[in-house]
Simulated assay, not measured.
Amino acid sequence: MHLFRLVFAFLCALGLALPALAQTRSAAEIAKLRMDIAGRQRLLSQRMTAAACFLTFDIDRERQLRILTESLDLFRVSLDQLESGAATMALPAVTTFSARIALHESRIIWGPYRNLATQIRDQAAAGDSGNIAQLDQLARLEPILLNSTQSVVSALSKAHQTQSGTRIAEIDLAGRQRMLSQAIVKESCLLTVAKTRKDSLASHLNQMRLKTEIFERTGYALRTGAVGDTPDPPPPDTFEALVQAHYAWSDLIYLLEPTRNGAALPELALFDVALVYEDLLPRLEDVVWTYVNG
C-alpha cells in the first residue's frame, strides 16, 4: 500500500495520471490537493539537498541518484501544476495574488538551484562525487528555496482556511512533518561534512535540535487533535497512520542519538540514517494522504 501511494503520487505529480482519474473536483478537494502539492515542495527542497550530500560521501549511490532525479522532476512539475493547473488532475491554476507572487519567487530561485543540483547529480552518476564546494553552494541556495515554498503554503493556507471540511491546518502540519524529518536527515549529513572540514558543528546541531523539537511537538498535536482552538481528534485511520509514523520516527531518532550529545555521525552511520528514513517517509505520506482524502 505504501508503494502504491508513492507511485500514484509520483505519477499524478508528473501529470501522468490516467485520464479516467480526472474529474470535477469540489472547492474543498482543490484546496486540500493544492496544500499537499505545495507542502511537498517544502519536503523536496530538503530531499534534494540531502541526496546531494549523501552523494558527496558516495552513500547509497544508486538510490540517492534516483531520489535526486525524481525530486528534481517532481519539484519542476509541481511548480507547473500550481502555476498553470493540471487538466489530468482536474486541478485549476492558483489565482490568489499572494500565492502567485510566492510561486514567482520560487520559480526565480528554482532555476539556479535546479542547475546546480543537476550538475551534482550528473557528476555523481559519472563517478565524480565528493565536490564539497558545489554542495556548499547548494546548501546556501536551499534555505531561500525553502522559504519561498513556505510562502506558497502560507498564502494557500490563508486563502483556503475558511473552506469547510478541509482540515487545512492539519494538512499544513502533516506536510511540515515531512519537511522537518527530511531536514533533520539533511542536517545530519551536513554535520558530518562540517566535521570532515573541521568547521564548527554548532549551527547544524542547533538546527537538528530545533527541528526535532518542532517535529515531536507537531506530531503530538496531530495525534491529540490539538491543532486549532477547539480539540478535534483525528479519525481512526488517520490516528493509526500517525502512530505508525511515530514508531518509524523512533527508529530514526535512535540512530541520531549521538548528535544530541554534540557528535557528528560517521559515514557508515549516515548510510543507516539514509536507509531508515526511506521507511519513515512513506508513513508520513500516509498521514498526509488520510487528511487530503478524508
Rank of each mutant, 00 (worst) to 15 (best):
R42E: 01
E187D: 15
V94T: 08
L44K: 04
A194V: 04
G39S: 01
T230W: 10
D232Y: 05
R34G: 09
R197P: 04
L205R: 06
T96W: 07
A22V: 09
M35F: 07
S200H: 10
L280Q: 04
L103E: 03
A269W: 08
S181L: 10
I108M: 10
L275D: 04
T88F: 14
A87F: 06
A202I: 12
D286P: 00
I108F: 00
M35H: 13
E285C: 12
P235F: 01
A31G: 10
E187P: 01
A264W: 03
T118E: 14
S157P: 05
P92D: 03
S45N: 00
S188D: 07
R178K: 12
V273L: 05
L72E: 01
E142Y: 06
D251G: 15
I184D: 00
T69F: 11
I214K: 05
N131P: 06
K198W: 06
E213I: 10
A86Y: 02
S71G: 07
A20Q: 14
F54N: 00
L91A: 02
L74S: 09
G294Y: 10
L6A: 14
H2A: 15
L281T: 06
T212A: 13
D172F: 08
G225W: 00
I184N: 01
Q182H: 05
L6H: 11
L242M: 04
R34K: 15
S181R: 00
Y113E: 08
V152I: 15
Y277E: 08
E105K: 13
D60F: 00
G225L: 05
G39M: 04
C53V: 06
R25E: 11
I171R: 02
Q119C: 11
R63K: 12
D286K: 12
A133E: 15
R223Y: 00
R66F: 03
D279W: 12
A241P: 01
E216D: 14
M179P: 03
A194M: 07
V7T: 14
Y220E: 15
S106P: 01
I144P: 01
M179R: 02
L16T: 12
Q163G: 08
A248L: 13
D237H: 14
W249D: 07
R217C: 11
D128N: 14
L65K: 09
E83F: 08
L205G: 02
H246C: 03
A13Q: 13
D36T: 06
T290E: 11
H160Q: 12
